[in-house]
């Protein structure tokens, strides 16, 4: 009986040993670091560089195994960083500043969009917006609580236009009120809905125009790559590898010689958009991410961040200054050169 027990114990020990050896071999064969990257929105042209990094092996080469997760209105990358569900994420400047004002240990490591693609579309044959004062008497669409509300209120405040001078209309994802001409000017992302909504209006023989806040001096920072202070402190080599791979992939994805590769990738991830629209979206996205050849993708525009903070402070969206420069870490971008 004792001999049988000893035999069983010996066999169990051998099994455990084999398991340990096998798992060690497996780990040695796959040394990549696993991280999760939470995007701000769904897979579309605005995230072409992120998808490019994953599908064309930029992350693999950097020794990273990255899981890219789609975002959405109910997703918040900053909260996921803090809860440990993600190590990297994409967030807009207003999200970062709001989070910092509530003590969230979030750090910006790269700024993907140098120009905010958020603009307002209007029918150019019925109105024109050469000055913000042209909005007087018009019905202006805004998403209450969204960053377009902040931007529009800033634009109106710059010209001392009050809510009595314009009619603000609460917008959602349904464009019917705009198509029905109940609303004169509607917020869109220029590189996505701007194209599709514009096409529909042109098909009806209408001329379209866009109000670009940047043209009136309002630089409100859009999508940026964020991580946690803990990640930056404890695993700087991973952060550096991630930023380097990501920026290289964005550069490659927007390079004219890789256009077909980028479009093929978008065809895989964004099946609901037609090939023609995807192509035009890619061209416009390139202009927002890399507005001129001299601009390096990912560059953090500190003055724009400070302006964003000032705007939020003026509109009482944060109770006191957060000193946004403390939330920005350009060193990873510098090292990734």
């Amino acid at each position: 009986m004792a001999k049988t027990a000893k035999t069983y114990c010996g066999l169990a020990g051998l099994c455990v040993f084999i398991l340990i050896v096998c798992s060690s071999i497996a780990m040695a064969a796959d040394p990549s670091v696993e991280v999760t990257y939470r995007l701000k929105w769904l897979f579309n042209t605005s995230v072409v560089g992120d998808l490019y990094a994953k599908d064309y092996g930029f992350f693999d080469k950097a020794g990273l195994s990255v899981t890219i997760k789609e975002g959405g209105p109910e997703r918040d990358a900053i909260k996921e960083l803090e809860l440990g569900y993600a190590q990297f994420g994409v967030a807009s400047a207003d999200q970062v500043i709001r989070a910092r004002s509530k003590g969230a240990p979030v750090v910006v490591i790269a700024q993907l969009f140098q120009v905010n693609p958020l603009q307002w579309i209007y029918r150019a044959d019925t109105m024109t917006v050469k000055n913000i004062s042209d909005l007087k008497g018009r019905t202006v669409g805004i998403t209450y609580g969204g960053n377009d509300e902040t931007i529009m209120r800033t634009l109106l405040a710059k010209e001392n236009i009050t809510e009595q001078d314009v009619k603000l209309f609460s917008v959602r994802y349904d464009y019917t009120p705009f198509y029905q001409k109940k609303v004169d000017i509607w917020p869109v992302y220029r590189n996505s809905q701007g194209i599709t909504v514009g096409d529909k209006l042109r098909a009806e023989g209408e001329e379209i125009g866009f109000l670009d806040p940047a043209g009136f001096g309002v630089k409100f920072v859009a999508n940026s790559v964020v991580t946690s202070e803990k990640m930056l402190k404890e695993r700087p080599e991973v952060v550096k590898a991630f930023v380097t791979a990501l920026i290289q992939a964005w550069e490659a994805s927007l390079s004219p010689e890789n256009e077909q590769k980028a479009l093929k990738l978008l065809e895989k991830y964004d099946k609901d958009t037609t090939a023609d629209v995807r192509k035009r979206q890619l061209a416009l996205t390139a202009g927002f991410v890399k507005p001129s050849p001299g601009v390096r993708i990912g560059t953090i525009d500190l003055s724009a961040w400070k302006q964003t903070e000032d705007i939020m402070l003026k509109l009482k969206q944060i109770p006191e200054p957060v000193k946004v420069e403390k939330a920005i870490n350009s060193s990873m971008m510098e090292k990734s050169k």
């Binding site: 989070a99 509530k102 003590g103 969230a104």
Partner: peptide, 9 residues
Amino acid sequence: LNLSNYVIP
């Protein structure tokens, strides 16, 4: 979990 006011106030 020592979470900030942003995650749970």
